[in-house]
Amino acid sequence: MNYLKHIGKYFLMLRQVFRKPQKWSVFRELFFREVEDLGLKSLGIIMFISFFVGGVVAIQTAMNIDSPFIPKYLIGFATKRGIILEFAPTFMSIILAGKVGSYITSSMGTMRVTEQIDALEVMGINSLNYLVLPKILAALFFYPLLILLSMFLGIIGGYFAGVITDLFFSEDYIYGIQLDFDPYFIKYALTKTVVFAFVITTIPAYHGFYVKGGSLEVGRASTKAVVWTSIVIILLNYFLTQMILG
């Protein structure tokens, strides 16, 4: 029953979020600030993880293909498919849920407990629209770019890991990643990313906005937000895969 109450409250929150911004010049400023906070500041971790996990995927694929009847270019092919379909959009979104989700909940939660949100309301500002809409739009705009970069770096990471360790030849890997390229898979991955970007910003915003109490509750809300965002991403990943590829 309690879950239903939260789900209802979440959708009521969204109704307040999707209103016309009170001043476009202020909204534009906030949008670019959020692009920096939620997107550009996540570039480093996304690049680092993508490169090394791409390497691990390529090494593990190579290690598991020991039959002489399986061509080596399949390592590149499997790495590319794994990274584009699953690793970049889903795994990176869960990383972002941890990093960005906790940031959103703790910053909004702190604003709530220090009455900064009340201050916005008293001034006649729709605080949900002011605080959450720029975050959603910044994530919807920037995360697809981040995931495309993650795909690229993951594949590059696989290349370097295999070539340096002599697990496969450079030509085989490059042939493998070019083999049977289907742009629809990129579309599928980006569709998932857009949905996950929405989840990564709105669920933590919900937990932060409605927090009650003090700093301890803000900490608890951050943990809850990350857990619920990850759960929703995993569930939506399953349903979206069924709907789009199934």
């Binding site: 604003m111 201050a119 001034m123 006649g124």
Partner: peptide
């Protein structure tokens, strides 16, 4: 409104805090 703890926006400078309602309205 003057809140008990001030409720100033931490991420903004003093000037930006006071400018905020003017910028909005």
């Amino acid at each position: 409104m003057v809140f008990q703890g001030g409720a100033l926006f931490d991420s903004l400078t003093i000037e930006e805090n006071i400018l905020f309602p003017l910028k909005m309205f």
